[in-house]
Design a protein around this nucleic acid. Sequence first.
DNA 1: TCAAAAGTGTTAACCCTACACCCATGC
DNA 2: GCATGGGTGTAGGGTTAACACTTTTGA
Lengths: 247, 247
Amino acid sequence: MSDPVSPEAHADATGFLPGLAIDTVIVGFHEDQLKILLLEYRNTNLFALPGGFVREDENLNDAARRVLSERTGLQDIYLEQFYTFGDRNRYDAEAMRTIMRNNGTEPEENHWLLRRFVSVGYYALVDFTQVTPRPDALSDRCEWYDLAQLPPLMQDHTQIVEKALETLRENLDRKLIGFNLLPDTFTMGDLQRLYETVMGQSLHRPSFQRKMLGLGILERVAKKWTGGAHKAPYLYRFVSGKPSEVA
Amino acid sequence: MSDPVSPEAHADATGFLPGLAIDTVIVGFHEDQLKILLLEYRNTNLFALPGGFVREDENLNDAARRVLSERTGLQDIYLEQFYTFGDRNRYDAEAMRTIMRNNGTEPEENHWLLRRFVSVGYYALVDFTQVTPRPDALSDRCEWYDLAQLPPLMQDHTQIVEKALETLRENLDRKLIGFNLLPDTFTMGDLQRLYETVMGQSLHRPSFQRKMLGLGILERVAKKWTGGAHKAPYLYRFVSGKPSEVA
DNA sequence: TCAAAAGTGTTAACCCTACACCCATGC
DNA sequence: GCATGGGTGTAGGGTTAACACTTTTGA
């Protein structure tokens, strides 16, 4: 991967589309909590969403997929473009200057990374257990953070997360994408807790079970669970393969 | 308005964000047909969606509003960003070269308008009767076209229209935005025909009426209609002012 | 008087909620 | 046994579809 702050990168021949960025909200689910991946930039206390730029010969959606697989180590992830953020004052040159300085590069005035960027927002739903978070060239940490208690984020990234969540809530029932946050097999209880966490409200167990089964997209796996002091729940599987369509 | 092909515009100081465009699908409703505004470029047979570029000091959404009011003469229109189109091969330099030649400018090789563009798509819902279509600097015609029989469009504009319609269908009930396509007052029949046209299916009249009245967002205007050989329908008005929020 | 369009009432089907009850399992 | 979690049966309420009926108006 080409490094956007390496010395050979210069203003107009970076190999990336100018003024355009990608930010991804990578969502996981673990211990009844929604998590997202955040980067922490080297020697700073700046947190940011995983992002990147679009190569001159690369489709926009492919760039998002590339960022995603670079940070998670996974292919074929459910990914959806949800909004493009283009407010004039959303970009914070001072923060970017700090990041570059702490990476050993004194940015020249008018460096392309210091200018205004429009950013296309994507959200991705991943199986938490499958992800190996990997920092990018500018950051020394890439970790899961509880959505309920995020640190302050760079630029307008808090708003981006907000809007991603809004979209996720709207689409959870409509597009039946929640399964992408769970492992291949899961119990009805797992699924219900996921729905309750995303929607922020408790749901009635019998109704939920019948609704989900009525959709005809769950296959009951013969195997059962070996668990605690109670009836063993069935394991279910989502019938069609996990869709990774970018739409 | 600055003219993107005027001689003083040059590659890196155009005053616009590079590589980024806006395309708007401006939807109207007239005689039981959905219409959209199309531009026809001068001395060509090329049809395109109304579009534009983003000024360096302008918010992305404000640029869309500006394009919209320039083409329609209206302010406070319902406008929604729905998708950003960024395929590598979506831009067609040859068509753009033709357009510029027919406007009396021989474009230098590598002119900024001939390069790759990523385009943010917006759709707008307007009251057909209030719009005065106005061509832009490059086109000599700006007119309504029947959505059911559009001419071939430039680049990927046909796909953009498709996706705008998909989004409109999904949002029609959810966001209650259909009223933006009608005049201030309308009959229940008008509203039903609009819904039927957008959704592409016929609806049951008594159910539709009760559903709409049950939403509590329609006010019955005392005045009645003077029409044909049948009972005079009530005129209704949408209770809250027309929202023009870009979200 | 009739046809056409508009408004309203009635009934039945459907879905979802809520509650109840049974099953399995480890303590 | 009994508490706990999982699965299913059943009654009630709300919503919607389908049909019927009435009202208004010009030909």
